[in-house]
Amino acid sequence: MHVVPLPALADNYIWLLHDDAGNAIVVDPGDAAPVEAALTQRHLQLRAILLTHHHNDHIGGVNALLSKREVPVYAPHDARIATATQRVSDGDVVALNLPAARFDVIAVPGHTTTHIAYTGEGVLLCGDTLFSMGCGRLFEGTPAQMLASLDRLASLPGNTLVCCAHEYTAANGRFAQTIEPDNASLSARRQEVDALRAHHKPSLPVALFIEQATNPFLRTDSDAVIAWGQRQGVEDDRVARFAALRASKDVFTG
């Protein structure tokens, strides 16, 4: 399975997965134009659409894609996603024939209450829950929900390729460095990202084991993040520490 990030809108990535026979899946198509262009250029046939949550920059292109073809649209149980043909929830499996692919569905509330992720074929399609060196804002969920969601994603195999939905990596890295200034893995990842972005290349996908070593939101129990929380006067509780991290990122301007 080939995994391709399609830049869209201001800073989104629509994920295109396809096999060698020309069968394709797209994930969170907020805009139809980049998808149509990629399908044409690569001589692919769209076979399914996977959606993680209801925000328009993730679903805004679905109707236009469906206007030219009839394919299943997998989405969470959320009335705000009217284009869904197959509703899925935690523990469900999306099994596709063309292309032959299997994805487990994981409920990851936090960014929204009905947010889901798909994992399979060596990838994690996580929408706006997990970003490289960051995580999504809490628009509908609670810190406890988001931390539990991130814990679940962090428990996946370390070689899983994390396919985030936004190019936020450089800014996230600058924040992460303020939390763990002595983290050598984080410094190396930031250098790698700066080099990629200087050549207008995506910073994604990224292996989960790299996120486990560099992402403060996956490292709330690390000595460095615990020490940061203590300096901030945060009570010695991992949810409180995570909430403080997220609140600090919300106002970070570096």
Rank of each mutant, 00 (worst) to 15 (best):
S132Q: 13
L161G: 01
E121F: 02
A75H: 01
A184C: 05
A101R: 15
G22V: 00
D92N: 15
A244P: 02
R241Y: 06
L66G: 07
H54N: 09
A100M: 09
M1V: 07
M1S: 12
L124D: 00
L218K: 11
F252I: 00
R102G: 02
A24R: 04
A107M: 07
D237T: 03
D11Q: 11
V3E: 00
H200A: 10
V27D: 04
L208Q: 05
F252H: 13
A247Y: 07
N56H: 12
F252G: 03
T129N: 08
A32P: 01
M133R: 09
G233W: 15
P202Q: 15
H43P: 04
R231Q: 15
G229Q: 07
G122R: 10
V225R: 11
T114E: 12
L245A: 08
H58A: 11
P76K: 02
V26R: 04
Y13F: 15
R219K: 09
H166T: 13
L6T: 04
I14Q: 14
S89P: 02
A100V: 05
A224D: 12
T220G: 01
V88L: 08
G110R: 03
P76D: 00
D11F: 13
A95V: 07
A207P: 00
H111G: 03
V123K: 02
H166W: 14
R197Q: 14
V234N: 08
I49G: 07
D28T: 08
H18L: 04
Q86S: 07
A198K: 15
L51P: 01
V62Q: 07
Q177I: 05
V193T: 07
P157H: 13
T142A: 06
D28V: 01
V26E: 09
A33F: 07
P157Q: 09
V239H: 10
T169R: 09
Q177K: 07
R102D: 09
V162Q: 07
A33C: 06
F242S: 03
G134Q: 10
A37L: 11
G110T: 01
L17S: 02
A224F: 10
N56R: 13
F252M: 05
C164Q: 11
T114F: 04
T40P: 03
M1Y: 11
T169E: 15
D90R: 12
R137L: 14
A84T: 02
A24I: 01
Q86A: 06
M133Q: 13
E192S: 09
L65M: 06
L130H: 04
A79D: 14
Q145F: 01
V88D: 00
Y168H: 11
I116N: 02
I179C: 06
